[in-house]
Structures are given as C-alpha cells and as structure tokens.
Design a protein around this nucleic acid. Structure first.
Lengths: 181, 181
DNA sequence: CGGCGGCGTTCCGTATACAGAACACTCTAG
DNA sequence: CTAGAGTGTTCTGTATACGGAACGCCGCCG
C-alpha cells in the first residue's frame, strides 16, 4: 500500500483533474471544499495526489463541479485492452433487448496495432478517426485512415487497426445483436 | 458521515454491480479478492454496501473484472449541457495546432430537440446513432436517423437534432479548424 | 459418522482518510 | 508598516477502510 505522503498512481491523475476543473470554474479551494461539504485540507491533499480518496469523497467533489464521477476518473485504463501501446476505454454501453451497443475511445501509439478476432456474425463496427493516421484491415485489404474519416464494416471476420507514424485516436462503435454477458 | 454498519447510498449501487459482475464470471469471492490483491473480508463488505471503498480498492477490483472503473459507478449523468431533455457529455477533447476535435455523448429525451446555431466556417460534425430514432436537420431538409446510422455534415449553418418517439442516443464528433476556447 | 475443502460472513488490530485547526504566504487597504 | 482577508499548505485527533484471522455453513468423500 502506498504511503500517504507520496502521490498515489491513480489518485494523482484524479487529483490533477479535479484541480483543473476547479480552476477552470474560478473556484477557490476553500469554496469548493465548502460546497462539497468536505474539509479543505482533505481537498488540498486530494488534489495534490497525496490522498487515496473514498468513493463518498469523490462523489462529494464531483457534484458541485457538475461533472459525472466518471469524468474525474477518466479512467483511460479501464484496462479493457492493452496490447503494447493500445488503450481502449469503454465510454458507453447500451443494452437493449435485441442488441448491445458499445462505444470505445481507441488510442494506438505510433506503429501500434490492435488485432481483433472475428466477432459473432452480425456484429458491426464503425470508426470515426479523431487524430493521426493509419489503416484498418477487414478483409478487402487495408483501408487508409485520416482525421475525420469514417469507416463501417461487418466485424464477423478478423480485423485490425494499425497506427501510422503518429498516434492514432478514434471513436469505435460496436453493435452486437442478441446479447452476451 | 455514514456509519460503517449501514449501507452507504453510493456504495450500495457499486457493491451490487461488483457482485453481479463477479457472479456473471463465475468467480468466487475469495478468488476475485485474491486476483484483486485485497482481503476477501473487504470485498464481502464492499459488495454488500457496508464499506465506503477507496479509489485504490475500486481500481484493484475493476481490473481483474476487466471493466473500466466508470462501469462500476452507475453515474452516467454528466449533464454538461441541458436544454429540456437534452444531455450532452463531452467525452474527449483533442487539441491540435490546426484543429480541435471534440467527442460528445448525446442523449435526447423522446421528442426533445437540440438546436445549434451556425458554427464558424469549416466546422464539421459527424453523428453515429446508438439508440432510438429521430431526425437531423442541416439545411437540405430533415434526414431520418436510425440506430447504427452515420451522418456527416458541415456545421457552418444552423442545425438541429430531434428525437423521435423514443429517446435518441448518439456519438457526436465535432472538428473545429484553427482553435477556439 | 467425521474430516476436509470450498463458500461468504464477522471479527480484530493497524494504517490511513477524514474534518478542522494552525500555519505560511500574497494582496489590498488604511 | 501593519492589519485584515484571501489563498493553499501542513498538522492533529478521531473515525474507519484495510488485510487477515476466525467463524459458521454447506457439499463431498472416506
């Protein structure tokens, strides 16, 4: 367990995010602490990453900031996937009787590749490229990707995303019929 | 502050979610605790809502479950924007020298409408519909929207999204050249 | 029947997150 | 220059989250 006096890995990121949000709103540490109903000392140490906050504390802080708690975590690991240099954050899942829709934020380091085995029949993927360049492969040879591009394809075959010389970032929407898990 | 022996409001939901995920994977409490590297007593009390877990503990549990921490949090509001029945959560912002790319998760209540004034010239929007139906208007008359649909248009004219009889949920990607804000 | 290995819960002592007080520092006013 | 009100930090005692050790309960096997 990390010592209280040195920044906790996870806590550090959260703390920085809170401080950024607070300052963006022009709030002082004392006022935010008061609005959140927590001690200002607690908030100070929380922001500087010297605390490992409680769920209750996190909610207390997120509320007056007007953001969902998830925004503070901004996970980015969520650790859904982690081949070398690949981070996929699941941003949203919608379960309906006849299908499940998932939204991922996909980030590939320069040259990194994310290979997916074939999904069940009927699964469809869409990709909107945010930053960088690369290729997507889904059977008919590699398709080049540039910022702003949109690709849609059936994912019931093996497919892969590959980043170019720059990091590639994209939104990935996956629609799975029926339902699993 | 809540007593340790009675379920915490927030903690209760998280605990239930963890238990559900664990059982869905057929894991025993002891094994999950071991994989997470936490005491099984801690996990037990966490799942039954009798603990107010620490960020570190939450991460420890989320990781072997293979879900992002945000998935444990039921949160899902975010409310960055809110005309009547409209919620837009900004999920990601990428600032580059020559453009800014923003990703929103858009949710419109049944019949609700989100009207945007014209953005600066060169701004482009894309929409991927996750759930529900509706219309997008961007000059050339209303375009119908169905789950899985993708629309791209120049946003330098006034435009609007309107939900049909069901709630409409979509990913909205906005690319703004130069840089603003 | 007793023993054994699994389960989840409750109990314990220790480490630590908490609220609040005391503190150092920077401004502005008088 | 001093007083005051603001900032964010560090300190202190108490409540509690933590890991780990009982504990009770079940199903299996000898």
């Amino acid at each position: 367990m990390a010592r209280a006096t040195e920044p906790t890995g996870a806590g550090a990121g959260v703390g920085a995010r809170i401080r950024a949000l607070r300052e963006a709103r022009g709030l002082s540490l004392s006022t935010l602490a008061a609005e959140a109903g927590i001690g200002k000392g607690s908030l100070s140490e929380l922001e500087t990453g010297r605390r490992n906050p409680t769920l209750e504390t996190l909610y207390a802080v997120a509320t007056p900031l007007g953001v969902p708690l998830a925004a503070l975590l901004d996970d980015h690991d969520g650790a859904v996937v982690g081949d070398e240099g690949v981070v996929a954050t699941r941003v949203r899942v919608v379960r309906e009787p006849d299908r499940t829709t998932e939204v991922y934020l996909l980030r590939l380091a320069p040259g990194a590749e994310r290979v997916s085995p074939a999904h069940p029949v009927g699964v469809e993927e869409q990709l909107v490229v945010l930053v960088g360049s690369g290729f997507v492969e889904h059977g008919d040879g590699p398709v080049p990707l540039a910022p702003g591009d949109h690709v849609r394809f059936a994912a019931d075959r093996p497919h892969a995303y590959r980043a170019g010389p720059d990091a590639l970032e994209a939104v990935n929407v996956i629609v799975t019929p029926v339902t699993s898990v």
